[in-house]
Structures are given as C-alpha cells and as structure tokens.
Design a protein around this nucleic acid. Structure first.
Length: 438
RNA sequence: GCGGUUGUGGCGAAGUUGGUUAACGCUCCGGAUUGUGGCUCCGGCAUCCGUGGGUUCGAGCCCCAUCAAUCGCCCCA
C-alpha cells in the first residue's frame, strides 16, 4: 500500500465542509477590511526564504523543504507566506499602485520539515494578510482588529492577544548589543540551546522555554527599554488605537517571534483550548518595514499576520458544535432497466431546476435503495417501477411524514418545489435545511 | 534532531502464566418481507494478528530489528 508522506494529511469529504466554512469566514471578514486575495506559487527560489526569513531562524536552518530541480536550480517549498507576497509585490511593481496601502490576504499550504504532532504538520495551511505601504500605527492596530474579528466571526472564545515592540532598526541594533553584553558573563547559566542561540540570534534567547523561570532572563534587558523615541511613539500609538477600539491586549516584553524580518510591533494570538494540544499559538504577526528593501525593492513598510488553519479548526473542535448534516432533496429509487433510463431523464430535469438529488448506482434491491436514501438524508424518495413507468407517473414518499402520493412526471418538479416551500414556511426559518430552501 | 505510547477485520476493541477453531460491539451486505427504509430475527464479511528475523515441540502473546501512527521536547502556525 502506498501511503501518504509523513506529516501530510488527506482532507476527506467528511471534513472538507469544515474547511469550506472556515474559508468562507476568511473571505467575508477579509472583504470587510478591504483585503483582496493574492495567490503566489507554493515554491520559490531558495534564496528568497534565506534572505527574508533569515538564515539563523530555525525555519530556514532545519525546517525547509529544499531541493534541486532538473535544471539544478535550488527551490524551496514555501515555509510561510510573507516572503512570496513581498517578492510578488516587487516583481509586479505593486508598490507603485495608486491605491495604497496594498491590502492582500492569502490562503494555502505551507511546508516545514518537522516531527509532526497535534496541531503541527509538515504540510499545513495558513491564512495570512499583509498591509503594505503605510507607516501608520493605525494599520498595526487594524491588523490586530482584523485578526480578532476573524476569531470572533468563528465564535472562538478565550483568545489572548500578546503584543510587544522590537523597535526600528537602530533600536534593534542597540538592544542587541546591550543584550549580548548582559548575557556574555552569564551565558553558562543558560541552557545548551540558548548558548547556541546567543551566538547567531541573541534575541531568541529571550523567549526560551527552558530558561523561562531563570532570573537571568527575568532580569535581562528587554527590547522595550531600548526603543528610539520614534519607535516608542509608534508603539504607544498602536496601543492607543487598540484601546480606542476596545481591544484587550497584553504587553509581553519577552515576545520576540521566530522570523528575523520583524521591526516595531510583533504580536501573537493564543487560545488555551484542550483540543489544541500543546499548540496554544493559533496566529501571529508583526510589522516588517525593511523586508521589501532587503529583497531588492524600494523602501516600503508593511504589517502582516498569519494563522494556522489546522489550529483554528482544532480550536473550533473545542466548541463541540454538532456537525450539520447535508441533506438532499430527493432520492430516486428506480426498479428495472427501463425505470433507470427514465430516472436519468427525470433527475436531469430536477437538477436543472436546482434540486439536489441522487439515485442508486449499485443495483441495490428496493430495501437497499431506501437505506441509501436514508443515509443521504433524502427529504423525498421517488419510486419508479414498471407500474409507474407504464402509467407515466412516479410515487413520491415524504420521508418525514411517511405520506406517499402518485404524481405525473410533468408535475414532479413543481410538486416537489411546492412541498419544500411549504416545509420551509412551516418551520418559520428555524430548521437546518431552511436556509437553503427559502 | 531527542523522548514516551501504540500497531489484531472497514471502525472500536478482547485475547488469561506462549498451546493449537482469533471473542464481542458497530458498520456493511444478503435474507425473513420476489415494490417500500428507520425496529426485530437469521446468515455472511480477518489464508491471519504492521514488517523481517529469532527463541520454542508450539507465539497475536517472549526477544531483537525495522517501519508506521500518535503525543511531547525544541521551534513554530
């Protein structure tokens, strides 16, 4: 048996509806905020990710899927979405568009070579958004609002927003020096990983989980303390806008995040829900004012975020919402070859009229066909046998009332529509299939 | 990259100190009811216990290896 690659997942028909519902919410909320979709390739020149995400980040150091294609070009399956979007903006000169800021979102698969576990796959899916072209702190706040609106639309409770500022480039450089000076004499007190991190990316020492409780880290200087006046003003303005919108956020002075390109605002969204396993982080983002330039574009500031869709779905499971069945309108039970031929014709007409219907293709006996109709949640069973065929009629059984009536072929469609309308009216818009029928 | 757990029919799950016909439940299929479902009853569905090797007169049960799944660490979505 050929099996799927480790860390990949089949999204079977039984669960694809949940994905579609999630995508629908994403599309709706994105429209509210004025974001339009961008679709970029799922693989890019390896260099793109090395230069954007950063060579010292774990993502590039040990998690990318890269390989040489037949022309010996090094390509990489995208581990995140921002780099591709930035590349596309530069390549297509979108930074010169008249209507700035550019507001774009994307949905699609990402790839990271890691050991799979709950809420973490090698091929996983992200929904992300980028607002590019504005330095305004209002945009930072708006992105957080966008993210929280999405979670609210999904009815996801208990979400925490953590926020911090790394400052602009001068702030980051100053802080980095101060932090290294502080850590240098104390480095032996930290864990093995931190000692390695100290050398190639000292900022990451800050959010080490192992040394979380260590006084060395607790007392270490924090990025916030080294912000330039401009950076500090920016951060304060972001917080001001958030307060203005009534959004609650927690300032986390140790929040650093894994990608090298962040400047100023960084944030993370967490949900403590049992179905999430060890992955409390469902999304995160921040401002990256220098990335476009780093990748060869003009000076073009931006803010973005990304959510893990598997994690959103996992979080939603904690809500325990019952799976909504997807009933069909009619199931046609045909007995005999002649009836089957006629059935195809009738079904075609019903479907063209907008009714969802199906029939048996497994040569089941009558009883088996009724069972199949029940499995599919058919509202009506249409029985067509030799007798009906001869008379030009069909028996229509209402599966809810058990009442059966004989209807002429020509009247079948109007008859069913009439019945379905009555039902919809009767329930007053409360029942599950009403929304589709009304 | 490191650590824990698990691996028996489509699914869930028994399987005693190794003893020879691998429980049971669900689903599915057929029949009772040759044209009317959901209940009931009857019957059917594992050349075989992830794979390879070993111990033994004999292994699903013991040993080794290997693969896979799963959870966690690191890190992240």
């Amino acid at each position: 048996m050929i099996t799927k690659i480790k860390g990949t997942q089949d999204i079977l028909p039984a669960e694809s509806r949940r994905w579609q519902d999630l995508e629908d919410v994403i599309f709706q909320v994105s429209r509210l905020y004025g974001f339009r979709e961008i679709r970029t390739p799922i693989f890019e020149a390896s260099e793109l990710f090395h230069r954007s995400v950063g060579d010292t980040s774990d993502i590039v150091k040990k998690e990318t899927y890269d390989f040489a294609d037949r022309g010996d070009r090094m390509v990489t399956l995208r581990p995140e979405g921002t780099a591709s979007v930035v590349r596309s903006v530069i390549e297509n000169k979108l930074y010169a568009e008249p209507s700035l800021p550019l507001k774009m979102y994307y949905v699609g698969p990402m790839f990271r070579y890691e050991r799979p576990q709950k809420g973490r796959q090698r091929q996983f899916h992200q929904f992300g958004a980028e607002a590019m072209g504005s330095y305004s702190p209002q945009v930072d706040a708006e992105m957080i609002a966008y993210a929280t609106t999405l979670l609210a639309a999904l009815r996801l409770p208990k979400v925490r927003v953590k926020i911090n500022s790394l400052g602009d480039t001068p702030s980051k450089a100053l802080y980095r020096d101060q932090l290294m000076a502080y850590l240098q004499p104390r480095i032996d007190g930290l864990c093995e990983d931190c000692r390695a991190r100290f050398l190639d990316n000292p900022l990451r020492v800050l959010d080490c989980k192992v040394d979380k409780e260590s006084p060395i880290l607790a007392e270490a200087p924090k990025p916030l303390d080294f912000l330039t006046p401009e950076a500090k003003a920016h951060f304060e303005a972001v917080l001001g806008h958030l307060r203005g919108m009534g959004l609650e956020v927690q300032i986390d002075k140790s929040l650093v995040r894994g990608l090298d390109y962040y400047t100023h605002t960084v944030f993370e969204l967490e949900a403590d829900l049992p179905t999430l396993g060890a992955q409390a982080t469902i999304g995160g983002g921040g401002r990256y004012n220098d990335l476009v330039e780093t990748l060869g574009g003009p000076s073009f500031p931006a803010v973005g975020f990304a959510f893990g869709m598997e994690r959103l779905l996992l979080a939603l499971e904690s809500l325990g919402e019952a799976e909504k069945p997807e009933p069909i309108h009619a199931f046609l039970i045909a007995l005999g070859e002649g009836a089957r031929t006629k059935a195809s014709e009738l079904l075609l007409r019903l479907r063209h009229g907008g009714l969802i219907c199906d029939t048996d293709f497994m040569d089941r006996p009558l009883k088996g066909q009724f069972k199949q109709a029940e499995r599919l949640g058919a509202r009506f069973c249409l029985i067509l046998g030799d007798d009906e065929l001869a008379k030009g009629v069909i028996n229509v059984k209402d599966t809810e009332t058990g009442v059966q009536e004989t209807v002429e072929w020509a009247q079948l469609y109007p008859y069913l529509v009439q019945k379905i309308r009555e039902h919809a009216h009767h329930c007053g818009g409360e029942c599950a299939d009403c929304s589709e029928d009304c």
